[in-house]
């Protein structure tokens, strides 16, 4: 597997320079998805929880950064605040809802995201349905990140950061406890693993990753709307996490990359002249759906863990 990491690292460093502008945007969005998916994969794989509301934390992060920078907070502070706010929100809602299991948690997280979106759409201070516009670029000590290339490397750094944090978490005492938690809760509880606290910790960390992705997104695009974070985005994250392999960091990265690239290829195919206007959405929905179903039924552990086992 070492060579795969090497290829990925070289690709992440070289690609931004060689990609065409439109492709660079896709690269950046891919990286942002990857950050949120690493968190979700951790939550689903290590805490055994299904969340259909991960994009809510992306939205929270994005709006935190956006609102702070509109109110003239230093952009770097606004960016750092994004994961913090998402994690805090996760702790607040996590205490009541993490007692739910399986489909109940799935629906509860979905409900929370829809509620958040409708609050944002109705809130004057958040720009309502139009959202926030004219957001400044990110700047650090007088250096302004105003090129796509800057954001590409920022995202590479972000993915690396969340992957390292996730790696540390997985290989810590907490990680071992979490594995026990996902496999046999009662046994873990009996052996003194603080199940509730660990589950909340993963939920918060997972939210922070999505929040950071949202923060970068806000500076990269310069505008935000509730419609940028639909329920479907959360489902997309789930597809990426499941396809790559739950609980696997490399799986999350691969899942995000694979789905983004496949959907992008199909979209460019579907926007060829002569194709009907509905072709891009039909094809991308079909791809999400079929990949998700095929992987759940035939590669239930996901691609990366399955490959690891057979190598």
């Amino acid at each position: 597997m070492k060579w795969a990491y090497a290829v990925a690292a070289v690709g992440a460093l070289v690609l931004p320079v060689v990609l065409a502008p439109g492709q660079l945007t896709v690269f950046i969005l891919l990286g942002l998805s990857a950050m949120a998916v690493v968190g979700l994969s951790l939550l689903m794989g290590y805490a055994g929880q299904v969340s259909l509301g991960q994009a809510a934390f992306t939205a929270l992060g994005a709006y935190t950064s956006g609102l702070l920078s509109l109110h003239h907070a230093p952009p770097l502070l606004a960016l750092v605040a994004a994961p913090v706010a998402a994690a805090l929100a996760a702790v607040v809602v996590g205490v009541p809802i993490l007692r739910l299991r399986g489909h109940q948690l799935a629906f509860a997280t979905l409900a929370l995201q829809i509620l958040l979106l409708s609050v944002l759409s109705g809130a004057q201070w958040a720009g309502g349905a139009v959202g926030l516009q004219g957001l400044p670029y990110l700047s650090v000590g007088g250096f302004e990140l105003d090129q796509d290339l800057d954001y590409a490397y920022l995202v590479v750094g972000g993915v690396l950061l969340v992957s390292l944090i996730a790696h540390r978490l997985v290989h810590s005492r907490v990680g071992r406890g979490l594995r026990a938690l996902a496999t046999g809760e009662m046994a873990a509880e009996a052996s003194g693993v603080p199940v509730g606290a660990y589950r909340l910790l993963v939920f918060a960390v997972s939210a922070a990753f999505a929040g950071l992705a949202g923060g970068i997104y806000c500076f990269f695009l310069g505008y935000l709307a509730p419609g940028s974070f639909p329920v479907l985005l959360s489902i997309e994250y789930v597809v990426m996490a499941v396809v790559g392999g739950l609980g696997s960091i490399a799986g999350a990265l691969l899942g995000a990359a694979l789905i983004t690239v496949v959907v992008q290829l199909l979209t460019s195919l579907a926007t060829q002249p002569g194709m009907p206007s509905y072709a891009p959405s039909v094809l991308s929905y079909a791809v999400y759906a079929l990949l998700l179903i095929a992987v759940v039924l035939f590669v239930p552990k996901g691609i990366v863990p399955t490959l690891r086992r057979s190598l």
């Binding site: 399986g102 489909h103 489902i235 509905y278 039909v282 079909a286 999400y288 759906a289 998700l292 039924l297």
Partner: peptide, 24 residues
């Protein structure tokens, strides 16, 4: 649990079918 995720996927697949036949 796997069934729940599969039905989630089928719901998304329905989007493709519906847009194909009836638009958005």
């Amino acid at each position: 649990q796997a069934g729940l995720i599969v039905t989630l996927g089928l719901g998304v697949f329905a989007y493709a079918v519906e847009i194909f036949f009836w638009g958005d």
